[in-house]
Design a protein around this nucleic acid. Structure first.
Length: 771
DNA sequence: CTATCGCACTGTAGT
DNA sequence: AGTGCGATAG
């Protein structure tokens, strides 16, 4: 036993009795119900340290988490306690660990070792081409919907051939007019297989298939993973449950940690049943409850507790704390999202001044990523540094995906999505007609696109055949380099000789330059990566790199030590804590979200989400809602969230509507026009017609659903002129503003607050189309 | 086959 | 808002 381990025995004494019991019970099935802020990660960490102390080989321990961030945090903390031993642990997300295993075992399933991992965009693109090839109506068969349905099926371990064994499923497809769903699913799986590609769900499904079909392999991994730990167990789905069941079947040493109150992924197949079923699966299991909260004030713990009591389905527990009472939860009302941003920035500024706080002690949480924009603007104006997690990832950018597609293709030429992406980028004269011919041949001969263009069939293509041949040679020449050169050298050559670097370099627009820089950044990333070694000391090859980034998001490359305010969705905040938490957008239809209510009728999950948000805070929770909220120019809410009423009155404090200290100003259209500076360089150079007023997003009325907000009373809408004052059904008085666009005149109605400042804009275009 | 432009669509979360 | 797609001209 090394020194680090010895010191961790002392550390046990710092745990409370419940935590200690959970740590020491290392044999047999264990379920730990861990309330919010109850020191769960600590328990998991010491549990592993305790195992190592008791001569359990790190090689036999598997520790699974849900997100990369949690995995990283866990690895970090374990390294601190147990030192270098930690390297031998199998630790990671379900997806990354299974991807690693599938790489080793790929051939047993008929996949290439360097199989491609399709992200959601890739998968939807493939679905789109399949739907087109089947000549189905893309208005009925929406790739998005199809993708989700297939995902559901896969998570429930339903294979294509048994898709319609479930009559209920068949009926539901019938009623939604998608009777070809089963066929699409079948084709999709075949195409993925032929392309040597797996989507995210396949990483689970194929893992299951592997263990199911290959008893020897199952035995091997059962022996390897004699001790299994699962974090955030409440968020596992059926396929994960089944895989765990198989892996743990021999030794029964499975420890799951979770909190049913924090289950927020039911929408994508996670099921609370996994927790509830646990003792049926393992009757000899022991349960431990961690109920003492070390994170938050009395007020926060109690308010959150009262709130979550309203949910019917849950495991009985009583979360309590010895912490101080703390401030009440404050609730602010603002007029629009921009005002809300300003308010939050102001409040953070005040907090910082009054309490000498750092930026990093604040988090602003929201329900949807799109809410970040207004907050960003406000924080920027106040010069408060912030960092946004989630949203569009670096790896989803077009230029990044392009280069990665080349790299994927080099490793796995059958990958049709990547081939499709780059065969004519940069432009090399291989157009639609040529691709169509190749597609037809591939489908007739049941071959991949690459197999066609890498064969004599190329001769049948005609004039552009030579261009295709050149492309094939190019990819092959890259492939030849693989064994001789480092990942970085190959990647750099690809970027250069494919013409990507040149193409981007020649684009001197602001966007073009930033794209070039992004590619440079990716190459630098590959360089760093290829110089590092993996756990077994082997240099990182290109396929390992691709595997790695396929499962990575922006949020994972975090910069420690930066003093920045955190902006993220509530989902992303799970497992984190901050002294002050601002939760914005507390409106009906947004939170709880319209979708959760209409499609799944799942108010309880939204409530758990609210619970998660509040319990991130150590000392202070501030909630805010806007009087009206728009999305894509349409009103989506004008009503505070029902959750605000669910908080017991004794713990909350309604603040008066915001008073800003800006001097009142009268709105003046000419002045506004004069003040308006287009933000993008392109707009300044006159690239696009821009609205003469900032913040106006026009929406053609003839397509837009007339909402309460847009159906204002005016028979003479078509004669409205800029500067006209109009009466409006719900919002009262407004002023018409105009925008000069090409071809059509566009208008908007602007409203003012009591100071005469612009607060609300209703957007219209082509008003005369109203009938 | 390519470039350009206007139009339509999007819409919860993360691997 | 941003982006992808399709129509159209070159």
């Amino acid at each position: 036993m090394n020194k680090e381990l010895e010191s961790s025995i002392d550390f046990l004494k710092e745990l409370n009795p419940a935590q200690q019991d959970a740590v020491k019970e290392i044999e047999g099935p264990v379920m730990i119900i861990a309330g919010a802020g109850s020191g769960k990660t600590r328990v998991l960490t010491y549990r592993i340290a305790y195992m190592l102390q008791h001569k359990i080989d790190a090689f036999h321990i598997l520790s699974l988490t849900f997100t990369n961030k949690a995995a990283k945090e866990m690895r970090h903390r374990i390294e601190k306690v147990v030192g270098s031993e930690a390297r031998n642990l199998w630790m990671g997300t379900f997806h990354s660990v299974f991807a690693k295993i599938l790489r080793i075992e790929a051939e047993k399933l008929g996949y290439p070792k360097a199989f491609t991992i399709y992200d959601t965009d890739d998968a939807k693109k493939l679905l789109k081409t399949i739907i087109e090839e089947m000549a189905l109506d893309s208005a009925v068969y929406k790739p998005n919907v199809i993708y989700n349905r297939i995902s559901q099926a896969k998570n429930a371990l339903i294979f294509p051939y048994e898709y319609y064994k479930d009559k209920e499923r068949e009926a539901s497809d019938q009623t939604s007019g998608m009777s070809k769903m089963g066929e699409i699913y079948t084709t999709y799986c075949q195409r993925c297989f032929k392309a040597g590609a797996m989507d995210f769900d396949d990483l689970l499904l194929k893992m299951y298939e592997l263990l199911q079909k290959h008893p020897k392999t199952l035995e091997h991994y059962q022996h390897k993973f004699q001790y299994i730990m699962v974090d955030e167990y409440q968020d596992t789905n059926f396929s994960q449950y089944m895989i765990l069941k198989m892996l743990a079947a021999v030794h029964h040493n499975i420890c799951v940690v979770g909190d049913d109150a924090q289950s927020i992924y039911a929408f994508r197949g996670a099921t609370i049943r996994n927790i509830l079923n646990f003792n049926q699966e393992y009757p000899e299991m022991k349960t431990f409850k961690l109920e003492q909260n070390y994170r938050s004030t009395q007020t926060i713990v109690k308010a959150a507790g009262e709130l979550i009591k309203k949910n019917k389905e849950q495991i009985e527990k009583n979360v309590w704390t010895e912490n101080t009472e703390g401030d009440k939860i404050k609730i602010y009302k603002t007029l629009t999202d921009n005002e809300e941003g300003k308010l939050v920035a102001d409040l953070i500024f005040d907090d910082k001044m009054q309490h000498q706080m750092y930026n990093k002690e604040f988090a602003i949480l929201y329900r949807t990523n799109s809410q970040s924009r207004a907050l960003e603007e406000a924080l920027r104006k106040m010069n408060i540094a912030y960092r946004i997690y989630g949203g569009m990832s670096f790896y989803q950018r077009k230029e990044i995906k392009d280069l990665i597609a080349y790299l994927r293709l080099v490793l796995n030429p059958n990958d049709e999505i990547s081939l499709d992406r780059v065969i004519n980028y940069p432009v090399r004269g291989i157009g639609k007609t040529t691709m169509e011919k190749i597609r037809v041949m591939a489908s007739e001969q049941n071959k991949s696109l690459w197999e066609i263009i890498d064969s004599n069939d190329l001769l049948k293509i005609g004039a552009s055949g030579n261009k295709v041949r050149e492309f094939v040679m190019l990819i092959k020449s890259f492939k030849a380099e693989l064994s001789r050169k480092s990942a970085y050298d190959v990647a750099y050559r690809v970027a250069k000789e494919s013409g990507i670097l040149k193409d981007l370099y020649e684009d001197k627009t602001v966007e073009g330059m930033s794209r070039f820089e992004n590619v440079e950044e990716l190459l630098n990333g590959i360089k760093e990566f290829s110089q590092s070694k993996d756990e077994s000391g082997e240099p990182i090859t290109l396929d390992l790199y691709l595997q790695d980034i396929a499962l990575l998001t922006d949020a994972d490359k975090d910069v420690e030590g930066d003093d920045k305010v955190t902006l993220m969705t509530i989902h992303a905040a799970k497992g984190l804590e901050f002294p002050h938490v601002y939760l914005v957008g507390m409106e009906e239809n947004l939170f709880p979200s319209q979708m959760a209510l209409s499609s799944r009728n799942d108010l309880e999950e939204e409530r758990r989400l609210f619970y998660v948000a509040i319990t991130r805070a150590e000392r202070k929770v501030t909630l805010s809602f806007a009087d009206t909220r728009f999305r894509f120019g349409q009103l989506i809410s004008n009503e505070p969230s029902r959750f605000l009423e669910e908080l017991p009155a004794e713990y909350i404090h309604f603040m008066t509507p915001v008073k800003t200290n800006l001097p009142p100003r009268k709105f003046n259209l000419d002045q506004e026009r004069h003040n308006f500076k287009p933000t993008s360089l392109k707009a300044q150079l006159g690239g696009h017609p821009k609205p003469l007023l900032p913040d106006i997003n026009f929406k053609p009325l003839h397509k837009a659903q007339p909402t309460e907000a847009t159906s204002f009373e005016a028979d003479n809408t078509d004669t409205l002129e800029a500067g006209n004052h109009v009466e409006h059904q719900r919002f009262g008085k407004g002023l018409v503003a105009a925008m000069e666009g090409k071809g059509s005149e566009r208008k908007a109605i602007i409203e003012f607050d009591q100071y005469g400042r612009k607060v609300l804009i209703l957007r219209f275009a082509k008003l005369k189309i109203v009938e």
